[in-house]
């Protein structure tokens, strides 16, 4: 009876700990996201040092003029999400090949499967709607440089393409996985990099990144906890086989 209780408890713990490649997924996502932030920070500070007055603060520099977002930054932001997914998939496959998978009983999992895609599609529509609204406002302003240009010319196509790619990717990721931690990471990384897709880098981007970074650090802490718990469970499974 004790043995049965033990294997039942072991299965329950393994099913929960196994998610997100036993914590390694969160750590991998954090490494990639922090590398990207370092890259972005380097670009912003270099541009700031080159163009701003000595009196202007970085905050004011970004707030007043904004900084053009180069396409390579947008591409790197999208790559972080894709590389995170790829890394988690590879690590999870490696773990499952050695120990096998156990899916936890998670009543919210099925709900999240639909909630996450709906959330992203709504979020995308709001961002696009807001951006188009802003463009139209500029378009109506006769003193503005956009005056006389068509809406298509005003719109930053790469921003819309970036948003669409990130949304489609997040929806696919959220819908195909049964792993709550992976879904959480997909959501966080998408929200983190969504503002970067717009044509200029503003102070709001820094706020969003800073807030997302807090979330990412929490995932990293959870990842470390999961990884050590996974090692313990692996030891217990090995001990079971030795005793049998």
């Amino acid at each position: 009876m004790e043995h049965l209780k033990h294997i039942e408890d072991l299965t329950r713990r393994y099913a929960n700990i196994r998610m997100g490649a036993a914590g390694l997924g969160s750590l991998w996502a954090s490494i990639l996201a922090i590398s990207f932030i370092v890259l972005l920070g380097n670009y912003v500070f270099t541009e700031f040092a080159a163009s701003a007055d000595a009196d202007t603060s970085l905050w004011h520099f970004l707030r007043s003029d904004g900084l053009a977002t180069p396409v390579w930054i947008k591409a790197a932001a999208i790559s972080v999400s894709i590389l995170t997914w790829f890394g988690i998939t590879c690590l999870q496959t490696f773990i499952d090949k050695h120990l096998g998978a156990a899916i936890p009983r998670d009543p919210t999992g099925k709900l999240m499967r639909f909630f996450v895609p709906v959330f992203f599609i709504c979020f995308l529509l709001i961002c696009v709607g807001y951006n188009v609204g802003q463009s139209l406002a500029f378009h109506d302003n006769v003193t503005h440089e956009y005056y006389g240009k068509s809406l298509f010319e005003i719109m930053d196509i790469s921003a819309y393409l970036g948003w669409a790619t990130m949304t489609v990717w997040a929806v696919i990721w959220a819908f195909t996985t049964r792993d709550t931690i992976s879904r959480g990471l997909a959501t966080l990384l998408t929200l983190m990099f969504f503002p970067i897709m717009s044509s200029t880098l503003n102070e709001i981007d820094l706020i969003v990144i800073a807030l997302s970074l807090i979330g990412l650090l929490m995932y990293s802490a959870l990842g470390l906890y999961q990884f050590f718990a996974f090692q313990k469970i692996r030891g217990e499974i090995n001990a079971l086989q030795v005793s049998e």
């Binding site: 329950r12 099913a15 499952d96 096998g100 899916i103 009983r105």
Partner: peptide, 12 residues
């Protein structure tokens, strides 16, 4: 104890 368990884990 779980929603779904693979053969390999069950075996172990």
């Amino acid at each position: 104890a779980a929603e779904e368990v693979e053969f390999l884990f069950l075996l172990k």
